[in-house]
Design a protein around this nucleic acid. Structure first.
Length: 504
RNA sequence: GGGGUGUUAGCUCAGCUGGUAGAGCACCGGACUUUUAAUCCGUUGGUCGCGCGUUCGAUCCGCGCACACCCUACCA
């Protein structure tokens, strides 16, 4: 026996043993896992079509249906029982009476049914009717056990609330918690809503490598791996940016990619080592265009997936109906802290002292731009609850963005904040190959000086830019965080099916 | 990485100044042909996260470890 098999035996208990015994009995009786039963109806459709019909009218129609699903509740009352079946769309009640299901062929079927357990997967055929309390119910005349469940489900009323088990055994969470199912259905809807929006605007969906010889497109620590046949180290991508811009060079003017990024950094309620990002690039646009486009995209997603332009996140309203606020980095600092003057925010020594005073460490090599950004993160970021674009990011912290035409210290870049978090980041792309080469060199120097997250020099990317990339706007939207907002989820782990955990 | 809280039956949770454990649901047996968290009666189920220590005696006190959650740091 391997260690793993040994582990799976450890949490065996008497309930599981009893169910294994029942399965053994089923095997002896015949086929224990039949697969010929085909359901033709879904719970949600039945409620939608017949839920409002009067008891008498429904019986007159004599509607025969076939359903399948997991038995979630069971009430045996002697010679008749009620059971609640859950399929992928919802729940439907079954009325199982001995005299309706026992036949010459299956004289003991009702006795068997009484032994079936919560969690078992059943198929049933019968006629729809309404009980005395008005619940739409299937009067069963054929019933079959399709899959025996060996493990007991969590308690029927309180459900599963242990966060750890919800994450580690998402399948159980999905079986018993409707909110969990809703969250992931909404996630899927958000993605199709975004795709629809992008396709409507002539964007082409593309896929670029996840394995990168040089990690690029963001400032982050990468995961490393190794390709055996090529005998070369590779990195899981931290961003698709440099590949997508190569496609713009190639003449695909509007592209987008929705896929995973991997960053070898800390975990938190807002950070998972792999997370989903949409990046999109549009030639002949700039960051102003991107802001309008992103705003409309997020408004559409919020409205179409929640039915409202106002969303409640963790008890506080987010209003997507108004035009999103726009503030420069410096304006945002001034707005949320009255301790500084505009003049002081241009003084590196002053900023250094102010950041220290707020209890944060200051990197000795940080210039004015990154000092301003640090102060912004300390005093303003958490207050940006309503959707707000922050613009005029320092060039020092934006090595891939085009410099402002009027101020060479800042870039044509924005970040979108909602509920105090960064949701999107976009800019007019730097398409001057020589300038980009210079900026990469500065990054390499920073890396050599000990900045682990500084970028590498990507010579092929420079070569691509040397062929000429049209003026382009590019933006990334953090999909998991957007899903968190729309589903009112406090943790990123609530919107990722299988979040990373330490081994059990 | 730092701090806080937690880990008791399959699930949800009690457990007094330290005297080796309880409830509800689930399960098993019984009654019940319109229930719906069905109800009623009777059972079963535990290395109290792991290890060491203090003690006559530890679920409880101390130390260490593991895992989780929250805050914080890096970051999107």
């Amino acid at each position: 026996m391997t260690d793993k098999e040994d582990m799976s035996k450890q949490d065996e208990n008497t309930i599981i043993a009893e169910r294994r015994a029942k399965l053994k009995e089923l095997r002896e009786l015949g086929e224990a896992f039949p697969n010929q039963f085909k359901p033709g109806d879904f719970a949600r459709d039945l409620h939608a079509s017949y839920g409002k019909l009067e008891k008498g009218a429904l019986e007159e129609k004599a509607i025969l249906v076939t359903v399948a699903g997991r038995m979630m509740l069971k009430r045996v009352m002697g010679k008749a029982s009620f059971a609640t079946l859950q399929d992928t769309t919802g729940r439907i009640q079954l009325y199982v009476a001995r005299d309706n299901i026992n036949s010459e062929k299956t004289p003991e079927l009702y006795a068997q049914f009484k032994k079936w357990d919560l969690g078992d997967i059943l198929g049933a055929k019968g006629k729809l009717f309404k009980t005395n309390t008005g619940e739409l119910t299937l009067e069963v005349n054929e019933i079959i056990l399709l899959t025996k469940s060996l493990r007991p489900l969590p308690e029927k009323f309180h459900g599963l609330s242990d966060q750890e088990i919800k994450y580690r055994q998402r399948y159980v969470d999905l079986i018993v918690n409707e909110e969990t199912r809703d969250t992931f259905k909404k996630r899927s809807k958000i993605l199709s809503c975004i795709r629809e929006y992008m396709l409507q605007h002539q964007f082409l969906e593309v896929e670029t490598p996840m394995l990168h010889p040089i990690p690029g497109g963001a400032s982050a620590k990468p995961f490393m791996t190794h390709h055996n046949a090529l005998d070369m180290d590779m990195y899981l991508r931290i961003a698709p940016e440099l590949y997508l811009k190569r496609l713009v060079v190639g003449g695909f003017d509007r592209v987008f990619e929705i896929n995973r990024n991997f960053r070898n950094e800390g975990l938190s309620v807002r950070h998972n080592p792999e997370f989903t990002m949409m990046e999109f690039y549009a030639a002949y646009t700039d960051y102003e265009w991107l802001m309008d486009f992103t705003e409309k995209c997020i408004q559409k997603v919020a409205e179409e997936t929640t039915g409202s332009k106002k969303v409640t996140y963790q008890g506080k309203e987010i209003d997507f109906s108004k035009k999103f606020d726009r503030l420069t980095l410096v304006q945002a600092i001034l707005k949320y802290s009255d301790k500084f003057t505009e003049h002081e925010l241009l003084d590196s020594d002053f900023l250094r002292a102010a950041i220290k005073k707020l209890g944060d460490d200051v990197n000795a090599s940080a210039g004015l731009g990154s000092l301003q950004l640090s102060l912004f993160e300390l005093v303003a970021e958490e207050h940006l609850w309503q959707p707000t674009f922050i613009v005029d990011y320092p060039i020092e912290v934006s090595p891939l963005a085009r410099a402002s035409s009027t101020n060479s210290d800042i870039t044509e870049r924005f970040e979108l904040f909602i509920a105090g978090r960064e949701i999107a980041n976009g800019f007019s792309e730097l398409n001057d190959a020589e300038d980009q080469a210079k900026r990469f060199k500065a990054q390499v120097a920073a890396k050599e000086a000990g900045d682990e997250e500084a970028m590498y020099f990507d010579a092929d990317f420079i070569r691509a830019l040397e062929y000429g990339m049209p003026p382009t706007g590019g933006c990334g939207i953090g999909i998991d965080r957007l899903v968190m907002l729309v589903t009112d989820s406090p943790s990123i782990r609530d919107v990722i099916f299988f979040p990373h955990m330490r081994p059990e």
